[in-house]
């Protein structure tokens, strides 16, 4: 199954295999999303989901905790955790 993952900051859309994490694509295409720990703990890679929030995997308990600790609104997810299930557009915070 394929999904479209759009990085709004560089206006690049990538046709990705469903289930892939945003982190596995964003650095390869040169999006400006910045990573810290890469394991869902530090909150550095918080991104804004512009479209298709329902097409990302449900946040884990850990991701949810980190998002709440960073007072992130409902539009935000961690790029190192979120898996792409359907078409999604993401942007920088």
């Amino acid at each position: 199954m394929k999904a479209k993952l759009k990085f709004a900051d560089i206006d690049v859309t990538v046709n990705v295999p469903a289930g892939i994490r945003v982190i596995d694509v964003s650095e390869k295409v040169g999006s400006g999303i910045v990573y810290g720990c890469r394991e869902g703990d530090c909150g550095t890679c918080i991104m804004e989901v512009l479209e298709g929030m329902e097409n990302l995997s449900v946040p884990s308990v850990l991701e949810d905790k980190v998002l709440r600790e960073n007072m992130a609104s409902k539009r935000f997810r961690l790029a190192c955790q979120a898996q792409v299930i359907g078409d999604v557009a993401v942007g920088l915070v």
Partner: peptide
């Protein structure tokens, strides 16, 4: 002057 691009993931790996 950037045109939006669509690429396949296979192209990246």
């Amino acid at each position: 002057q950037v045109e939006s691009k669509v690429i396949d993931f296979e192209y990246l790996v």
